[in-house]
Protein backbone atom coordinates (compact mmCIF):
# COMPACT_ATOMS: atom_id res chain seq x y z
CA UNK A 1 0.00 0.00 0.00
CA UNK A 2 2.67 2.43 1.07
CA UNK A 3 4.84 1.39 -1.78
CA UNK A 4 2.04 1.90 -4.22
CA UNK A 5 1.43 5.45 -3.02
CA UNK A 6 5.05 6.34 -3.34
CA UNK A 7 5.35 5.14 -6.88
CA UNK A 8 2.26 7.05 -7.95
CA UNK A 9 3.73 10.17 -6.41
CA UNK A 10 6.99 9.90 -8.26
CA UNK A 11 5.23 9.35 -11.55
CA UNK A 12 3.06 12.44 -11.14
CA UNK A 13 6.06 14.56 -10.31
CA UNK A 14 8.00 13.23 -13.24
CA UNK A 15 5.07 13.89 -15.55
CA UNK A 16 4.66 17.43 -14.36
CA UNK A 17 8.29 18.13 -15.05
CA UNK A 18 8.05 16.77 -18.54
CA UNK A 19 4.84 18.48 -19.57
CA UNK A 20 5.47 21.88 -18.07
CA UNK A 21 8.64 23.54 -19.39
CA UNK A 22 10.64 24.91 -16.53
CA UNK A 23 10.44 28.72 -16.52
CA UNK A 24 13.55 30.27 -15.14
CA UNK A 25 14.14 33.97 -14.80
CA UNK A 26 16.65 33.73 -17.62
CA UNK A 27 14.42 31.89 -20.09
CA UNK A 28 11.57 34.29 -19.37
CA UNK A 29 13.60 37.34 -20.18
CA UNK A 30 15.59 36.03 -23.11
CA UNK A 31 12.60 36.58 -25.42
CA UNK A 32 12.33 40.27 -24.70
CA UNK A 33 16.04 40.92 -24.23
CA UNK A 34 16.70 42.03 -27.85
CA UNK A 35 13.93 44.61 -27.62
CA UNK A 36 15.19 46.06 -24.37
CA UNK A 37 18.81 46.08 -25.52
CA UNK A 38 17.86 47.77 -28.78
CA UNK A 39 15.67 50.41 -27.19
CA UNK A 40 18.27 50.96 -24.49
CA UNK A 41 20.82 51.85 -27.12
CA UNK A 42 18.72 53.79 -29.58
CA UNK A 43 16.02 55.42 -27.45
CA UNK A 44 17.12 55.52 -23.83
CA UNK A 45 20.78 56.29 -24.39
CA UNK A 46 20.22 59.22 -26.79
CA UNK A 47 17.47 60.63 -24.55
CA UNK A 48 19.55 60.30 -21.41
CA UNK A 49 22.48 61.76 -23.34
CA UNK A 50 20.51 64.87 -24.27
CA UNK A 51 18.95 65.31 -20.86
CA UNK A 52 22.20 64.88 -18.95
CA UNK A 53 24.03 67.27 -21.24
CA UNK A 54 21.24 69.78 -20.87
CA UNK A 55 22.03 69.86 -17.15
CA UNK A 56 25.75 70.39 -17.66
CA UNK A 57 27.76 73.51 -18.21
CA UNK A 58 30.76 73.63 -20.56
CA UNK A 59 33.00 72.26 -17.86
CA UNK A 60 30.68 69.34 -17.24
CA UNK A 61 29.31 70.51 -13.90
CA UNK A 62 25.66 70.27 -12.97
CA UNK A 63 23.69 73.41 -13.76
CA UNK A 64 20.16 74.64 -14.34
CA UNK A 65 21.47 77.67 -16.22
CA UNK A 66 20.76 76.13 -19.64
CA UNK A 67 17.07 75.95 -18.86
CA UNK A 68 17.09 79.43 -17.43
CA UNK A 69 18.68 80.59 -20.66
CA UNK A 70 15.71 79.25 -22.63
CA UNK A 71 13.71 82.20 -21.35
CA UNK A 72 15.05 84.68 -23.85
CA UNK A 73 12.83 86.44 -26.34
CA UNK A 74 14.25 84.64 -29.37
CA UNK A 75 13.93 81.13 -27.99
CA UNK A 76 10.57 81.65 -26.35
CA UNK A 77 9.21 83.09 -29.58
CA UNK A 78 10.34 80.06 -31.53
CA UNK A 79 8.60 77.75 -29.05
CA UNK A 80 5.62 80.00 -29.20
CA UNK A 81 5.33 80.04 -32.99
CA UNK A 82 5.71 76.26 -33.12
CA UNK A 83 3.00 75.86 -30.51
CA UNK A 84 0.73 78.32 -32.32
CA UNK A 85 1.14 76.59 -35.67
CA UNK A 86 0.61 73.19 -34.09
CA UNK A 87 -2.45 74.41 -32.25
CA UNK A 88 -3.95 76.11 -35.31
CA UNK A 89 -3.43 73.16 -37.62
CA UNK A 90 -4.54 70.67 -34.97
CA UNK A 91 -7.82 72.53 -34.52
CA UNK A 92 -8.41 73.33 -38.21
CA UNK A 93 -7.24 69.96 -39.48
CA UNK A 94 -9.01 68.26 -36.61
CA UNK A 95 -12.32 69.91 -37.41
CA UNK A 96 -12.13 69.27 -41.14
CA UNK A 97 -11.01 65.70 -40.52
CA UNK A 98 -13.79 65.13 -38.02
CA UNK A 99 -16.45 66.53 -40.32
CA UNK A 100 -15.23 64.38 -43.20
CA UNK A 101 -15.07 61.29 -41.00
CA UNK A 102 -18.58 62.13 -39.82
CA UNK A 103 -19.70 62.36 -43.44
CA UNK A 104 -18.32 58.93 -44.33
CA UNK A 105 -19.65 57.20 -41.20
CA UNK A 106 -22.80 58.74 -39.79
CA UNK A 107 -23.59 61.04 -42.72
CA UNK A 108 -25.19 59.29 -45.61
CA UNK A 109 -22.54 58.99 -48.28
CA UNK A 110 -22.54 56.20 -50.85
CA UNK A 111 -20.79 53.09 -49.57
CA UNK A 112 -17.80 53.32 -51.91
CA UNK A 113 -16.92 56.82 -50.67
CA UNK A 114 -15.71 55.57 -47.34
CA UNK A 115 -12.95 53.27 -48.54
CA UNK A 116 -11.79 55.78 -51.18
CA UNK A 117 -11.50 58.54 -48.59
CA UNK A 118 -9.76 56.29 -46.07
CA UNK A 119 -7.22 55.24 -48.70
CA UNK A 120 -6.53 58.84 -49.71
CA UNK A 121 -6.20 59.75 -46.05
CA UNK A 122 -3.58 57.05 -45.67
CA UNK A 123 -1.69 58.49 -48.61
CA UNK A 124 -2.00 62.14 -47.62
CA UNK A 125 -1.11 61.63 -43.97
CA UNK A 126 2.09 59.94 -45.12
CA UNK A 127 2.83 62.46 -47.81
CA UNK A 128 4.74 65.01 -45.80
CA UNK A 129 8.19 66.48 -45.88
CA UNK A 130 10.13 67.64 -48.92
CA UNK A 131 7.64 66.81 -51.71
CA UNK A 132 4.75 68.35 -49.78
CA UNK A 133 6.64 71.61 -49.52
CA UNK A 134 7.27 71.56 -53.28
CA UNK A 135 3.62 70.83 -53.95
CA UNK A 136 2.53 73.87 -51.96
CA UNK A 137 5.07 76.08 -53.69
CA UNK A 138 3.54 74.98 -56.98
CA UNK A 139 0.09 75.70 -55.60
CA UNK A 140 0.31 78.85 -53.51
CA UNK A 141 3.80 80.17 -54.16
CA UNK A 142 4.20 83.45 -56.05
CA UNK A 143 3.67 81.69 -59.37
CA UNK A 144 1.59 78.83 -57.97
CA UNK A 145 -1.54 77.74 -59.75
CA UNK A 146 -4.02 79.02 -57.17
CA UNK A 147 -2.16 82.31 -56.78
CA UNK A 148 -2.17 82.87 -60.54
CA UNK A 149 -5.75 81.72 -60.89
CA UNK A 150 -6.93 84.14 -58.23
CA UNK A 151 -4.96 86.95 -59.83
CA UNK A 152 -6.04 86.34 -63.42
CA UNK A 153 -9.63 85.26 -62.96
CA UNK A 154 -10.73 87.05 -59.81
CA UNK A 155 -8.16 89.87 -59.85
CA UNK A 156 -7.17 89.08 -56.31
CA UNK A 157 -3.47 89.27 -55.69
CA UNK A 158 -3.04 87.44 -52.43
CA UNK A 159 0.62 88.36 -52.18
CA UNK A 160 -0.27 92.06 -52.34
CA UNK A 161 -2.77 91.40 -49.61
CA UNK A 162 0.04 90.22 -47.35
CA UNK A 163 -0.15 86.49 -47.93
CA UNK A 164 3.14 84.66 -47.97
CA UNK A 165 3.62 80.91 -48.24
CA UNK A 166 6.70 81.20 -46.04
CA UNK A 167 4.70 82.70 -43.22
CA UNK A 168 2.63 81.45 -40.33
CA UNK A 169 -0.49 81.21 -42.48
CA UNK A 170 1.32 79.57 -45.40
CA UNK A 171 2.94 76.94 -43.22
CA UNK A 172 -0.35 76.30 -41.46
CA UNK A 173 -2.08 75.71 -44.79
CA UNK A 174 0.68 73.32 -45.81
CA UNK A 175 0.63 71.39 -42.54
CA UNK A 176 -3.14 71.02 -42.71
CA UNK A 177 -2.63 68.89 -45.82
CA UNK A 178 -1.33 66.03 -43.70
CA UNK A 179 -3.24 66.97 -40.56
CA UNK A 180 -6.86 66.49 -41.60
CA UNK A 181 -6.27 63.09 -43.22
CA UNK A 182 -4.59 61.90 -40.03
CA UNK A 183 -7.63 63.08 -38.08
CA UNK A 184 -9.88 61.10 -40.41
CA UNK A 185 -7.86 57.96 -39.72
CA UNK A 186 -7.82 58.58 -35.98
CA UNK A 187 -11.45 59.54 -35.47
CA UNK A 188 -13.23 57.13 -37.83
CA UNK A 189 -13.03 54.19 -35.39
CA UNK A 190 -14.56 56.37 -32.67
CA UNK A 191 -17.43 57.32 -34.97
CA UNK A 192 -17.89 53.69 -35.92
CA UNK A 193 -18.12 52.95 -32.21
CA UNK A 194 -21.28 55.04 -31.87
CA UNK A 195 -24.09 52.56 -31.38
CA UNK A 196 -27.25 53.05 -33.40
CA UNK A 197 -29.00 51.92 -30.22
CA UNK A 198 -27.98 55.19 -28.57
CA UNK A 199 -29.61 57.23 -31.29
CA UNK A 200 -32.72 55.09 -31.21
CA UNK A 201 -32.90 55.16 -27.42
CA UNK A 202 -32.65 58.96 -27.49
CA UNK A 203 -35.30 59.18 -30.18
CA UNK A 204 -37.50 56.79 -28.28
CA UNK A 205 -37.23 59.01 -25.22
CA UNK A 206 -38.41 61.97 -27.25
CA UNK A 207 -35.12 63.63 -28.21
CA UNK A 208 -34.84 65.54 -31.46
CA UNK A 209 -31.86 65.07 -33.78
CA UNK A 210 -30.32 68.23 -32.31
CA UNK A 211 -30.79 67.09 -28.72
CA UNK A 212 -29.20 63.76 -29.57
CA UNK A 213 -26.20 65.51 -31.14
CA UNK A 214 -25.77 67.94 -28.26
CA UNK A 215 -26.44 65.69 -25.32
CA UNK A 216 -25.33 62.26 -26.43
CA UNK A 217 -23.16 62.08 -29.53
CA UNK A 218 -20.85 65.05 -29.04
CA UNK A 219 -20.19 64.39 -25.34
CA UNK A 220 -19.33 60.78 -26.16
CA UNK A 221 -17.01 61.83 -28.98
CA UNK A 222 -15.38 64.78 -27.22
CA UNK A 223 -12.55 62.82 -25.57
CA UNK A 224 -11.74 61.15 -28.90
CA UNK A 225 -11.86 64.44 -30.80
CA UNK A 226 -9.60 66.18 -28.28
CA UNK A 227 -7.31 63.16 -28.19
CA UNK A 228 -7.09 63.18 -31.97
CA UNK A 229 -6.27 66.89 -31.96
CA UNK A 230 -3.47 66.30 -29.47
CA UNK A 231 -1.98 63.71 -31.80
CA UNK A 232 -2.18 66.26 -34.60
CA UNK A 233 -0.53 68.83 -32.36
CA UNK A 234 2.42 66.53 -31.79
CA UNK A 235 2.50 65.62 -35.44
CA UNK A 236 3.02 69.24 -36.42
CA UNK A 237 5.08 70.28 -33.41
CA UNK A 238 7.83 67.83 -34.35
CA UNK A 239 7.65 68.44 -38.11
CA UNK A 240 11.01 69.49 -39.47
CA UNK A 241 11.31 68.40 -43.10
CA UNK A 242 8.28 70.25 -44.42
CA UNK A 243 9.12 73.46 -42.63
CA UNK A 244 12.78 73.31 -43.54
CA UNK A 245 12.17 72.63 -47.24
CA UNK A 246 9.46 75.24 -47.43
CA UNK A 247 11.02 78.11 -45.54
CA UNK A 248 14.67 77.07 -45.42
CA UNK A 249 14.86 78.57 -41.96
CA UNK A 250 12.88 81.69 -42.80
CA UNK A 251 10.39 80.96 -40.06
CA UNK A 252 11.98 80.46 -36.68
CA UNK A 253 10.28 77.23 -35.66
CA UNK A 254 11.69 75.31 -32.73
CA UNK A 255 12.49 72.31 -34.95
CA UNK A 256 14.46 74.57 -37.29
CA UNK A 257 16.42 75.94 -34.31
CA UNK A 258 17.26 72.43 -33.11
CA UNK A 259 18.26 71.45 -36.64
CA UNK A 260 20.59 74.40 -36.89
CA UNK A 261 22.09 73.52 -33.55
CA UNK A 262 22.83 69.97 -34.76
CA UNK A 263 24.65 71.25 -37.82
CA UNK A 264 26.79 73.64 -35.88
CA UNK A 265 26.63 75.34 -32.55
CA UNK A 266 24.66 78.35 -33.78
CA UNK A 267 23.70 79.34 -30.26
CA UNK A 268 27.37 79.33 -29.24
CA UNK A 269 26.32 77.31 -26.22
CA UNK A 270 26.02 73.51 -26.60
CA UNK A 271 24.23 73.13 -23.27
CA UNK A 272 21.53 75.55 -24.37
CA UNK A 273 21.05 73.51 -27.56
CA UNK A 274 20.40 70.40 -25.49
CA UNK A 275 18.01 72.26 -23.23
CA UNK A 276 16.19 73.44 -26.36
CA UNK A 277 15.65 69.85 -27.49
CA UNK A 278 14.69 68.67 -24.00
CA UNK A 279 12.17 71.52 -23.86
CA UNK A 280 10.48 70.06 -26.95
CA UNK A 281 10.21 66.68 -25.29
CA UNK A 282 8.69 68.32 -22.21
CA UNK A 283 6.02 70.00 -24.33
CA UNK A 284 5.29 66.67 -26.01
CA UNK A 285 5.17 64.87 -22.68
CA UNK A 286 2.60 67.30 -21.33
CA UNK A 287 0.52 66.75 -24.45
CA UNK A 288 0.81 63.00 -24.20
CA UNK A 289 -0.32 63.02 -20.58
CA UNK A 290 -3.46 64.87 -21.65
CA UNK A 291 -3.88 62.39 -24.47
CA UNK A 292 -3.54 59.47 -22.14
CA UNK A 293 -6.10 60.87 -19.69
CA UNK A 294 -8.59 61.55 -22.47
CA UNK A 295 -8.12 58.13 -23.99
CA UNK A 296 -8.66 56.49 -20.63
CA UNK A 297 -11.87 58.38 -20.24
CA UNK A 298 -13.28 57.45 -23.63
CA UNK A 299 -12.19 53.83 -23.29
CA UNK A 300 -13.81 53.59 -19.90
CA UNK A 301 -17.05 54.93 -21.29
CA UNK A 302 -17.05 52.68 -24.28
CA UNK A 303 -16.11 49.54 -22.42
CA UNK A 304 -18.85 46.95 -22.56
Amino acid sequence: MLNNDKSTNTTTNGDARNVRPHHSFFSDWIGVAPFFIFTLFFIVLPSVGLVSRAFQDNAGNFTLQNFANLFTREILSSYWISIRISFTTAVAGGLLGFLMAYAITVGKLPAGGRSVILTFSGVASNFAGVPLAFAFVATMGRTGMITVLLKNVFHINIYNMGFNLYSFLGLSLTYTFFQFPLMILVITPALDGLKTDWREAAENLGASQGTYLRKVMLPILTPSILGGMILLFGNSFGAYATAYSLTGGFLNLITIMVGAQIKGDVLYNPGLGYALAVGMVIVMLIMMIFYYLLRQRSERWLRK
Binding site: L99, M100, I117, F120, F134, M145, P181
Partner: peptide, 27 residues
Amino acid sequence: GSFWSWLWVAIGGLYFFLPLLSTFDFS
Protein backbone atom coordinates in the same frame (compact mmCIF):
# COMPACT_ATOMS: atom_id res chain seq x y z
CA GLY B 1 -27.35 65.74 -43.71
CA SER B 2 -26.36 64.45 -47.08
CA PHE B 3 -25.68 67.99 -48.36
CA TRP B 4 -23.33 68.81 -45.49
CA SER B 5 -21.61 65.44 -45.90
CA TRP B 6 -20.93 66.16 -49.54
CA LEU B 7 -19.75 69.68 -48.75
CA TRP B 8 -17.09 68.61 -46.24
CA VAL B 9 -15.94 65.80 -48.46
CA ALA B 10 -15.71 68.21 -51.37
CA ILE B 11 -13.60 70.65 -49.34
CA GLY B 12 -11.31 67.85 -48.23
CA GLY B 13 -11.10 66.58 -51.78
CA LEU B 14 -10.10 70.00 -53.09
CA TYR B 15 -7.53 70.36 -50.35
CA PHE B 16 -6.09 67.05 -51.38
CA PHE B 17 -6.22 67.34 -55.14
CA LEU B 18 -5.49 71.02 -55.84
CA PRO B 19 -1.85 70.88 -54.72
CA LEU B 20 -1.33 67.69 -56.70
CA LEU B 21 -3.01 69.17 -59.75
CA SER B 22 -0.97 72.36 -59.47
CA THR B 23 2.23 70.40 -59.07
CA PHE B 24 1.44 68.15 -62.01
CA ASP B 25 0.55 71.14 -64.14
CA PHE B 26 3.77 72.88 -63.17
CA SER B 27 5.85 69.78 -63.85
